[in-house]
Nucleic acid binder design. Structure first.
Lengths: 140, 140
DNA sequence: CTGTATCCTCTCAGATACTG
DNA sequence: CAGTATCTGAGAGGATACAG
């Protein structure tokens, strides 16, 4: 697979942004690092899967999500949905019928995040084989 | 904080990409989902921190990394570096001096990934306060 | 200096049963 | 249907000591 070259201009730009990110960090006294908070929140497998699925299926109910997001347990799905709702990514709508019906969909903010997530997923898809290849050769 | 609006065009585009991603998925028989593999590999806290640091400091030795990537243990740092090397993100160079010197730096592929990571981190930085705000209000 | 080996803790998540 | 409650196990990761 061909790896697209990162141009000099891109690298300079990256360096500038990194400097902005790292600039204020004091390694000797760092109760919590902003970058770290941010990465922790991005890096939850189930949350990202939930958001991607709600991107593809605009509205889903609890048990529909449970089927789509294969392998997730009641507990974790419930926890993550509450968290995603609390953070503003997901809207939860209750229809007080019998039996009760609850629908989930992305908010505008959720869609904004979805864009980033798709970009990342695309990148990963495109380079998956390259990584797998490397990994195989490295073992030898 | 102002959330930038996701345009209709962007949403349509996202839907198209999601369709491509989700299109081939059979929920009834899915030993492993490609999206999932991909997300798992993206979503390791220590790996992302290592890559971001190697983006900012072009070359780092083992113990330097250990100081910068605050809180990481020998074991985990060593594991992740081996993995990142094996996958092709990081180059490891040994100088057989006494005492031995080992240097780590990003490969071109690593820089390509770094670009994506920075974009994501920037997004997260920009929306951090919005999320924290939501979270506070949700508790009430 | 750059790791590896070992042990040990402790969280997270899966399974199951149950409730409004 | 949409979750909550409880229990349990696996496994990730921290601390420490040690090796090349």
């Amino acid at each position: 697979m061909q790896i697209e070259t990162v141009t000099e201009k891109q690298r300079v730009n990256a360096a500038r942004k990194l400097k902005k990110m790292f600039g204020g960090i004091d390694y000797t006294n760092m109760p919590h690092c902003p970058i770290r908070d941010v990465m922790a929140f991005v890096s939850d497998k189930w949350s990202t899967l939930i958001i991607l699925h709600l991107g593809y299926f605009p509205v889903l109910r609890f048990n529909e999500l449970k089927k789509k997001v294969f392998g997730v347990s009641n507990k974790v799905l419930s926890e993550r949905l509450k968290q995603l709702e609390g953070d503003g990514y997901v809207q939860r709508t209750v229809y007080p019928e019998v039996p009760i019906r609850v629908e989930y969909n992305l908010t505008d903010f959720g869609h904004s995040y979805l864009q980033k997530l798709i970009e990342l997923t695309e990148w990963a898809e495109n380079h998956k084989n390259y990584v797998i290849n490397n990994r195989e050769n490295f073992k030898k």
